[in-house]
Amino acid sequence: MRFNQVAFRYRRRAPWVLRDVTLTVPRGRIIEVNGRNGAGKSTLLRLVAGVVPPVRGGVGDRPPSVGYAPERFPADQPFTARAYLGHMAAVRGVPAARIGEWSERLGFSGLLDTRLPDLSKGSAHKAGLIQALLAAPGLLVLDEPFAGLDARTRAALPALLAELAAEGSSVIVSDHQGDLRSVPGVVRWRVEDQTVHEGDLPEEHTVVEVILPRSQAEDLVGRLKADGYEARLR
């Protein structure tokens, strides 16, 4: 899937949220999207999922099956979780048995007969994740999936996402809290200055004091400089 010179704003004459975004969504990889609040992460994810079309530029080769879990699950619906997920399975044309499988994996089985408005924030979030996972998506887009989850599910989710990526899905996740740090091979996108940069956020620098005999100081500074560090003698 490719973004070609994509630009987006919500209304005519409104400021651009994203401009000149050209990137490729790699298959079979997890992509972590980060950036400050209001940088445009959720907008980028909506463009990737196909919730909104770009105002300029083009998006091509999106996989036919896409799963999308918004940042806030719409719990204000007059269904039990089972009925809601049953409807979503029917809409996507997948067997209802998948509801049980994913509910089991996300520790949601005991809540299937609870009405959606009665679910806690974290449980409602799980319902949103399950509906996104139902169709075995080629592209899975999750907006802040770790927010509000219990510790057990939060710990289990990275491995689950890695499993989906290993099966060939592209998994795009916005994450503030660094829950994917333990997963190897994660591609990182940084949304900043109305565009998307590939790569990690610049790491914070710190000062380390080393106390040693004066005669060895110049030698150590030289060695540190040779290793690529910024070092000076005071």
Binding site: G67, P70, R72, M88, R92
Partner: peptide, 16 residues
């Protein structure tokens, strides 16, 4: 009756 976020999910699930 369909919340905005559910409408977004529907658009992704079956197309705009």
């Amino acid at each position: 009756t369909e919340p905005d976020a559910q409408r977004h999910i529907g658009v992704v699930a079956i197309g705009r």
